[in-house]
Amino acid sequence: MSDGPAPLERFWNGILPENPVYRQILGMCPTLAVTATMKSAMTMAAATGFVLICANIITAMIRNQLKAHLRILVFVLTIATFVTIADRVLAAYMYDMSKQLGPYIPLIIVNCLIICRCEVCASKQGVWTAICDAVGNSLGFALGLASMATVREILATGSWFDIHMFWLAGTPGEKFRWALMALPPGAFLTLGFLLGAGNWIGDAMAGKKKAQAA
């Protein structure tokens, strides 16, 4: 039953050509909600990656036993279990971060990215392909979150990963350069412009390829 793209192709597709944030436009809620700082964005990406990889492995292992009408139920059951585990681990070892992310950790359950990968890849292809696909998509998702958080954190606080950018004026943490970027509208603005930029680059590259081919 291993029809569909090869493992390595799945891996690479997940990172750039089918980037979850910029190309598939999946998992928008965390992309907007937790990208005010780099730290929370990366924690989120790690938690999502963990759940995605585990869920993909389990789904790929049981793919031959799946009944069509019960498959969504099985996916949701698997995802919710791993999200609970991720949530507990965060609460035990990174208490401050888990408090800061709050409800957005449980909201990974309904992150369309994970269900979509289970449905598209893991329920049709083998375990190895599913792992590659999950890792690739997690990296792609992390890339998306990182780009958002970089723009927002630097513009809003003048620091990156809590490291103060010394060549920018103002004292760390105290002087907000552009508070709007840390607030909801800033998230929408950043994602809108980044999506536009992504499309623009994508179009330009496609145009170049076409010109070369011709």
């Binding site: 049981i62 036993q65 799946l66 009944k67 019960l70 139920l73 099985v74 059951l77 698997t78 279990t81 609970t84 585990i85």
Partner: peptide, 15 residues
């Protein structure tokens, strides 16, 4: 539904 029941038991124990 056996798959769902088995999974639910396994996950329950894990949790």
């Amino acid at each position: 539904g056996w798959l769902v029941l088995v999974l639910a038991t396994v996950f329950g124990v894990g949790l």
